[in-house]
Design a protein around this nucleic acid. Structure first.
Length: 122
DNA sequence: CGTATGACGAGCC
DNA sequence: AGGCTCGCCATAC
């Protein structure tokens, strides 16, 4: 089942959140990208899991974690398990407020908005 | 400690 | 191009 993980201290979730917190406004990052930066080379799914468990009020570095800036590798907003489109709609709106263009189908141009600020070392 | 789950991703068909 | 399957990882139970 899905319950709140023990987000006590230095858990993988916290690491993920810290990376997400670095994504600048007006940019987006993919789950796989966040995973790599967090040290989880193939843990894209784990990133999704971590974001699902992210309490909305969580703050890192004094500000809320911009979870809306994380999308899948196809440039689309991934659906949650809940009501179809409910959360996705909120995410699209939040992204547009960030200045990111989101198509009605919920697609984003990665070539244009993908965060390239920090790349993994070779 | 073994099984199941999921805001993913890369291949295949 | 669109859709399915299989692999990955950490967490829940």
């Amino acid at each position: 089942m899905k319950q709140s993980p023990g987000v006590g201290d230095d858990t993988v979730f916290l690491k993920v959140w810290r990376v997400v917190a670095r994504v600048p406004r007006g940019r987006v990052a993919t789950y796989g990208q966040i995973a790599r930066l967090a040290g989880l080379y193939r843990g894209a799914r784990t990133v999704g899991w971590a974001l699902r468990a992210l309490p909305g009020e969580t703050r890192i570095g004094g500000r809320r974690v911009p979870w809306q800036r994380v999308i899948n590798a196809q440039g689309e907003i991934s659906a949650r398990g809940g009501p179809a489109g409910a959360e996705a709609g909120r995410q699209a709106a939040a992204l547009r407020r960030d200045g990111v263009s989101v198509s009605r189908a919920g697609r984003i141009d990665l070539g244009r908005y993908l965060w390239r600020g920090e790349r993994r070392r070779p």
